[in-house]
């Protein structure tokens, strides 16, 4: 079952008098419960593709079909609703609200979807427990380590039970060991039946995925299945 189908998508920016083709012509599909990595050097159009996949931006040309809905021509508010319900974002820099505690950060998407307070708190709590932060619920981001912050961000992405998780360099700001722990978490999420799109420029991170889509100069260079996907193991807890 396909969640995402994009056909001949292009994104053209006007920079001064020059037209920049960030994406020239990209077509791809992503199915349910897939684990896909999008790779490419800087300038390859990777970020632009991610923004379009994440409904933060609309393509200049082409069709983007999300769960059978054409989102390429939606307005701001409709896109906001799709982002809220269908997409969970995980960013390189975590992007938590600095002055709010973990619980409030995780609750936020549910506030925007209009869920009553009690139910919301329960769901957020549950999401925090799932990422192993039951002891850090009332801590603010600056009282948490990088790995813990990213876990809060992942809990926030999962709390709405979205169709896809969109992770942009989720280990980019973490040391190798913490990064590995996060990749373990992603693997668990994937094995629980979620769809993950991972944007990265690091080969060994991309190899956690089932499939790697390589971009270059706004075009899909390769779309390859990973033969021996790297399955990270949970370390001994310490």
């Amino acid at each position: 079952m396909k969640i995402i189908t994009i056909e001949h998508i292009a994104k053209i920016y006007q920079v001064g008098t020059e037209e920049v083709h960030a994406l020239a012509d990209v077509s791809l599909t992503i199915g349910k419960n897939e684990y896909v990595a999008i790779m490419g050097p800087s300038g390859s159009g990777k970020s632009t593709l991610m923004n379009i996949l994440g409904c933060l931006d609309t393509p200049t040309k082409g069709i983007y079909d999300f769960n059978g809905v054409n989102v390429s021509e939606m307005n701001d508010n409709e896109l906001a609703a799709i982002r809220n319900k269908e997409i969970g974002f995980v960013f390189q820099t975590f992007n938590l609200l600095p002055r709010s505690n973990a619980l409030h950060n995780v609750e936020l998407p549910l506030i925007y979807s209009g869920m009553p307070s009690a139910e919301r708190k329960e769901r957020a709590m549950e999401a925090l427990i799932n990422v192993g932060l039951e002891n850090r619920v009332y801590h603010r981001p600056n009282e948490l380590s990088g790995g813990q912050r990213q876990r809060v961000a992942i809990a926030r992405a999962l709390v709405t039970r979205p169709s896809i998780i969109l992770a942009d360099e989720p280990t980019g700001n973490l040391d190798t060991k913490t990064g590995e722990e996060i990749m373990v978490l992603f693997n668990e999420i994937y094995e629980a039946g979620n769809t993950i799109i991972l944007v990265t420029h690091e080969e060994y991170i991309a190899e956690h995925a089932e499939r790697i889509i390589r971009l270059r100069d706004g075009l899909v260079e390769k779309n390859e299945i990973v033969e021996n996907r790297f399955i990270p193991q949970k370390r001994e807890s310490h």
């Binding site: 906001a80 319900k85 998407p109 926030r156």
Partner: peptide, 16 residues
Amino acid sequence: TREIGVRKAIGAKNRT
């Protein structure tokens, strides 16, 4: 600005 970006990314509408 960044906070507003985050809020929008996770589903805040313009009106919100």
